[in-house]
Amino acid sequence: MLVDDNADDNFFHGRIIEKSDPAYVVVAEQTGKDALEYLKSEKKNNALHPDLIFLDINMPGMNGWEFLEAYDKLEEKYKSRAIVIMLTTSENPDDRTKARAMNIASDFKTKPLTQEMLEEIVRKYFTE
């Protein structure tokens, strides 16, 4: 799942993910609110719980941090046991520190998402 207000970025990142493995299903949402809505009503369009969420920080309306807080408070049945990874243009060390302090997101990556980054993430978080 991609949560980013930048549709272009969603397009490229989705392309990278799909190219990496055509079996991956990508869901892209441009606002945090839409993403939460999706998580709460997943059944209606027959989609799956996301395993991996890429989350931007600077978004209009609900920003990445606010999404994280709301996501953390979701009822357990809606909460997918997804790995959340911050994916942002921010190189501000404070943001990195903040993400670590909140301890909801597993990782902090700088845009753009590349094939290599994705492979590394998959290797690190999805290899049993």
């Binding site: 930048n6 272009d8 490229f12 243009t89 845009k111």
Partner: peptide, 10 residues
């Protein structure tokens, strides 16, 4: 950086 990246990506 952002539009530049977009151009580059496209």
């Amino acid at each position: 950086q952002e539009p530049l990246r977009t151009v580059s990506n496209y």
